[in-house]
Amino acid sequence: MSIGTTLKSSIGAKALMAVTGIILVLFVIGHMLGNLQVYLGADALNAYAAKLQSLGPLLWVIRLVLLGTFLAHIIAAIRVVKLNRAARPVAYHQQKDQATTFAARTMWVSGVLILLFAIYHVLHLTVGVVDPAGTYGALDSEGRHDVYGMVIAGFQHWPTTAIYTVAMVVLCLHVSHGASSMLQTLGLRRPGNASGFDKVGPALAIFLLIGNLSMPLSILAGLVG
């Protein structure tokens, strides 16, 4: 018996999804908290960005870990989806859901959309390949990357804000099921805490939705920048 036994099993595949899910959710929370510094002004945000850049090789380690986590999450998801599809070769003519939610039913759809968005997001704000505002690579007065300017200019462009808005709704839908689900998958949900744990996902999703959407929307509305 070893980690191999664990991973080979259906429960192991789910546990892998849950563990990687936790890392990704923590990342999403941290990412959001960092970005919220946009409300503190250009200096704060650019200094934060410069500090991240200054991590050098460590930044790459973090990036690789994140990428690996993301890939593992996707591979586990593909396995589970395949397994589950195969488990019911003949579909029902009529099936009425009794307990499940829209979010739970659409996890793989939201997952694929999040993957597409993640690629777009990196191309937009990390690599600058997609750059409708043409502000990628500009420097601020202290010679740092002008992340603040890039963000403000980016979200003043309404199609970009629209894409981010949709993406955040999808992400939060995914998190609303995923974050509660991982507690059950890892065996932490018990009769005493079940109803509380089932609220963790939706609560976290609302928290992320408010935090993440407030930035592009307030920029588009001209309240920031």
Binding site: S10, I11, A13, K14, V80, L83, N84, A86, A87, R88, D97, Q98, A99, T100, T101, A104, R105, M107, H177, S180, S181, Q184, T185
Partner: peptide
């Protein structure tokens, strides 16, 4: 059998 994804059906 499939894997549980916590639908609670």
């Amino acid at each position: 059998f499939g894997a549980c994804s916590n639908h609670y059906e």
